[in-house]
């Protein structure tokens, strides 16, 4: 589904991604782990095109999307849920969803408001509430739902559990597993290892802008050396 090869990105002159490479098979959930400032968010932003990569290939379902505009990448089937939620606070829940709407692809059934409300029952109870008047957890659900309205084949989630109450994080884990059942591929950046362990099939560890380790969650669990060197847990 996704094949990233030697990706380099800069902020101004700061060289942040220094040749990141990894592959993500279709239908799997992969978690990107790493210290603060390692480049997880920058990887996500480079994939969706908000940060334009300077060099490297991003092979998405057979097409090199590196250097495309964000809206083209999104239309190609990449969905992005940013770190800081970013709901449209003046728009209602339904309007927020409307912004995310894109046509269905691959002949799969399109996400509709009703299907999303079934997945996130909380949202269904506040359809006309303004995004700015929702709690942090509800906003997080809304950003995911909004992105799903674009019927993505690959979903990028940047720290979805941050700032959420443990009960909500549990619900979120359930939702991600449900998405996986639907056939959506997920790339997740996380700090919460408990959460990552619950939802992910495989992990990639990023350090100073390079992927230094990839493998299954079980392998990560067994590899004490990697965990102490890069994750320090």
């Amino acid at each position: 589904m996704l094949n990233v090869d030697d990706l380099h990105s800069y902020y101004g002159r700061a060289h942040i991604l220094q040749g990141a490479s990894f592959a993500l098979p279709a239908g799997e959930v992969m978690v990107l782990l790493g210290r603060n400032g390692a480049g997880k968010s920058t990887t996500m932003k480079s994939l969706i095109g908000i940060v334009r990569p300077a060099r490297g290939r991003i092979d998405f379902a057979g097409v090199d999307i590196a250097g495309w505009e964000p809206h083209r990448i999104a239309r190609a089937g990449l969905g992005y849920v940013p770190e800081e939620r970013r709901v449209f606070t003046d728009l209602t829940v339904l309007e927020n969803l409307e912004v995310g709407r894109q046509p269905a692809r691959d002949g799969r059934p399109a996400w509709t408001e009703e299907r999303l409300f079934a997945l996130f029952p909380n949202l269904g109870r506040m359809r006309t509430r303004a995004g700015g008047r929702m709690s942090g957890g509800e906003q997080q659900m809304l950003t995911i739902a909004r992105t799903l309205m674009g019927n993505p084949r690959l979903l990028l989630l940047d720290e979805p559990s941050e700032g959420l109450a443990p009960v909500i994080v549990e619900e979120m884990a359930g939702a991600i597993l449900a998405l996986k059942q639907e056939g959506v591929t997920v790339l997740l950046a996380e700090q919460n290892l408990h959460f990552a362990a619950r939802v992910a099939d495989r992990a990639a560890v990023i350090e100073k802008g390079r992927i230094v380790w990839t493998g299954t969650m079980a392998a990560l669990h067994a590899d004490e050396a990697v965990r102490t060197a890069y994750l320090a847990v």
Binding site: N36, G163, Q191, N192, A232
Partner: peptide
């Protein structure tokens, strides 16, 4: 500590 690495 929101957003920080677990060890930190």
């Amino acid at each position: 500590t929101a957003g920080m690495a677990p060890s930190e």
